[in-house]
């Protein structure tokens, strides 16, 4: 009986895993470093989610985008040389839970961002824009730069971020609020203005082989987090966190 059950489970699992691969160009994404691809990327994610899941592949090139939302079972693979470039206009970020997010997932399951590519938040240009808006009174003076998140997840489980380089974010690079089962592995973080990993009431967090080339704080824990494992996570001075 047990065998049958596990076979059944295996079949279910393999159905999920056999999900399809999609190239970004299928949805009209342009790698020119100019075209804002948010419409195409969001459509691709929604489309893949509707198909039951799969992987959206970005190959070498710079893909400018505004904020977009991830959906359950949609994985993103950034192949070597692929750069997801956040817009330098703060209004292009999605407002979720009082934050301005580039990539977000709320109430989702099974999310992956993997590969050898880069996510670039263009913090310099973004900071200039925020400052000028504040000076003109068009953005509340209370607006805090650290409310700009590169990756923001809430009430989401089974998240894996692996292999990529995360650079130049204005605010936290990786924020997890009420999330479970988080794996961050082999990330290179180079973002002097922002915190790298921020946990709030999250559990089963596995951090391994992370290198914090520059960051404000490598790991910030708020609320009650449980089962936070750290393996080989190094700061620029060679010290472990």
């Amino acid at each position: 009986m047990k065998i049958y059950i596990s076979a059944f489970v295996f079949i279910l699992w393999s159905i999920q895993v056999s999900a399809q691969d999609f190239n970004a160009s299928l949805f009209g994404c342009k790698s020119d470093g100019v075209t804002n691809n948010v419409g195409s990327i969001q459509y691709a994610i929604d489309y893949i989610a509707k198909k039951g899941g799969g992987t959206l592949h970005f190959y070498v090139g710079r893909y400018v985008t505004s904020g977009f939302s991830l959906k359950s079972n949609v994985h993103i693979e950034l192949h070597e040389g692929a750069v997801l470039v956040g817009s330098s206009n703060i209004y292009d970020y999605q407002q979720i839970d009082g934050r301005y997010t580039l990539i977000s997932g709320v109430g989702q399951q099974n999310i992956q961002i993997k590969g050898l590519g880069v996510i670039d938040g263009q913090s310099k240009a973004l900071a200039l824009h925020v400052r000028s808006l504040k000076e003109k009174g068009l953005l509340s003076s209370e607006f805090a730069m650290d409310k700009v998140s590169q990756l923001y997840f809430s009430k989401t489980s089974n998240i894996a971020i692996e292999g990529i380089m995360q650079i130049n974010s204005l605010g936290a690079l990786n924020s997890f609020v009420d999330c479970q089962s988080i794996k961050l592995r082999k990330l290179e973080i180079n973002s002097p203005q922002s915190n790298a990993v921020v946990l709030l009431n999250s559990s089963q967090v596995n951090l391994s082989d992370l290198f914090f080339k520059s960051t404000k704080q490598a790991l910030v824990q708020e609320g009650t987090n449980s089962n936070v494992l750290k393996t080989n996570c190094l700061l620029a001075n060679g010290k472990s966190i």
């Binding site: 790698s31 020119d32 470093g33 100019v34 070498v60 090139g61 710079r62 070597e80 040389g81 692929a82 750069v83 050898l116 880069v118 380089m165 290179e188 290198f211």
Partner: peptide, 12 residues
């Protein structure tokens, strides 16, 4: 800032 910038790769 040029269109089709060279790709960031070969790290670290």
């Amino acid at each position: 800032g040029y269109d089709y910038e060279g790709p960031v790769e070969d790290y670290p």
